[in-house]
Design a protein around this nucleic acid. Structure first.
Length: 401
DNA sequence: CCTCCACAGGAAGCGCAGGAGT
DNA sequence: ACTCCTGCGCTTCCTGTGGAGG
């Protein structure tokens, strides 16, 4: 513990840095992943279509259910939120009672918590635990029909609801307009997963998919203009070069046309430049930021690997060149007995090697050596030092490195 | 051409944890 | 509080297979 004066000095210097710190960023908000820009570029067609679909709400009618499809960062959520905001304003202007709800199913986590969100929007108090899902839902439904509410719900990441639960809630929601004679529920579903339809109950699908809309990825040129807009809002004038913005768009666009990643890259680049004490983001900052983001992703992927997968990855490293499934398994047997973990069968280890292959951490190709059998040839695809670094953080693994 | 190595990878079933229904 | 159900990680058992060497 330092003296009172020391403490004040430290606090003072932190605050001074914070106050004058951002010479580059004037407003971080437009760089946040969930930011909805006032004008959404290159989505006129989708915005128009969604607006037309939900418009009947203002005539106190139920509107068609819609499914919005598209990969991450293609503007689905932003489109939905933008239309929802405008709808709310219009309803206020004409004093039309509407009830709107936006909820993210993945963040909510369970069907029950999605229902809690719905309950809050229609103004019912529901205990956050204690009720069965059915009871909670019927209270929401009762409120809707008692007050003749016209309820529009946006279910973001709806695929999560279909994958990680019984799907009862979706079934109830899609059926509701048959049951609720006064009032009604209209749905906008948003999904990143294009195969989401296949795992849906056909009855739910036919109701939910009354209208469908696909959001294409942004082109590099579109990303470039989107980024320029964000730069205007978030950066101080002249704090980023034209070339840097272009590079940012090109790098993000060459992957999947993911605007969210492109904006992320922009934000991290600004942090990189700021940490270097520069007043302007240049192309090399973008490159550093990209590397940093990729490395962070890799570290995270390694960190959350199950113990057995970590041991197997370590076995791949330790068996070096003779990396056939057999020799890796022998190494694995040695390692796992040394750390005192129960050993898996060769079949399972082979499966885990395939999983690591799919994650892009190793490459495993089947190779036939004729008389000498047929096996996977395995090699590490990422930096050995980085892997060892991360694995050492696991106390159990650290014992054998 | 046939054999046979050293596995690949599918199918079925088991035990367990966690979540839903009662 | 209790059963029932489901999904998951895993094992067991199995059939399939490319090609060097006979």
């Amino acid at each position: 513990m330092g003296s009172e004066a020391d403490q004040k000095k430290i606090i003072n210097s932190i605050f001074t840095k914070a106050a004058e710190g951002s010479r580059i960023i004037k407003d971080a908000e437009p760089l946040r992943p969930d930011y909805v820009p006032p004008k959404l570029l290159f989505r006129d067609e989708q915005i128009t279509a969604v607006a037309q679909i939900v418009a009947p709400i203002l005539r106190k009618q139920r509107c068609s259910n819609v499914l919005l499809y598209g990969k991450t960062g293609t503007g689905k959520t932003a489109t939905a939120r933008l239309v929802l905001n405008e709808l709310r304003l219009k309803a206020q202007e004409f004093k039309i009672p509407v009830c709107l709800c936006y909820t993210n199913c993945r963040l909510a986590g369970t069907e029950y918590r999605v229902v809690l969100d719905l309950a809050e929007s229609v103004g019912v108090k529901i205990p956050f635990t204690g009720l069965s899902l059915g009871e909670a839902y019927s209270r929401v439904a009762a409120q809707i029909s008692d007050n003749n509410l016209n309820f529009l719900v946006v279910l973001d990441e709806i695929d999560y609801l279909a994958k990680n639960s019984t799907g009862n809630l979706l079934y109830e929601l899609t059926r509701s307009h048959e049951k609720l004679t006064p009032g009604g529920i209209s749905l906008i579903g948003i999904s990143n997963d294009l195969r989401f339809k296949e795992m849906l109950d056909p009855r739910v699908l036919s109701s939910l998919g009354e209208e469908e809309m696909v959001f294409p990825p942004y082109s590099v040129e579109e990303l470039r203009l989107i980024l320029k807009e964000r730069v205007k809002l978030a950066f101080n004038d002249g704090c980023i070069t034209e070339g840097a913005v272009n590079l940012c768009a090109a790098l993000a666009g060459s992957e999947h046309g993911d605007a969210r990643r492109a904006v992320d890259l922009l934000r991290v680049s600004a942090e990189v430049a700021e940490r270097e004490g520069k007043a302007r983001v240049e192309e090399h900052h973008i490159k550093i930021a990209l590397q940093k983001m990729e490395q962070d992703r890799l570290i995270e992927a390694l960190r959350v690997l199950p113990l057995q997968a970590k041991l197997i990855l370590l076995s791949v490293i330790k068996s070096e060149d003779s990396s056939s499934t057999g020799s890796i398994y022998q190494t694995y047997l040695r390692l796992s007995s040394r750390v005192g973990v129960e050993t898996l069968t060769a079949r399972r280890v082979s499966g885990i090697l395939s999983e690591l292959d799919m994650q892009g951490l190793i490459s495993a190709n089947v190779l036939s050596k004729g008389r000498y059998g047929r096996s996977k040839r395995v090699s590490l695809l990422v930096s050995k030092h980085l892997v060892l670094d991360v694995l050492t953080q696991d106390p159990i693994i650290a014992a054998v490195i």
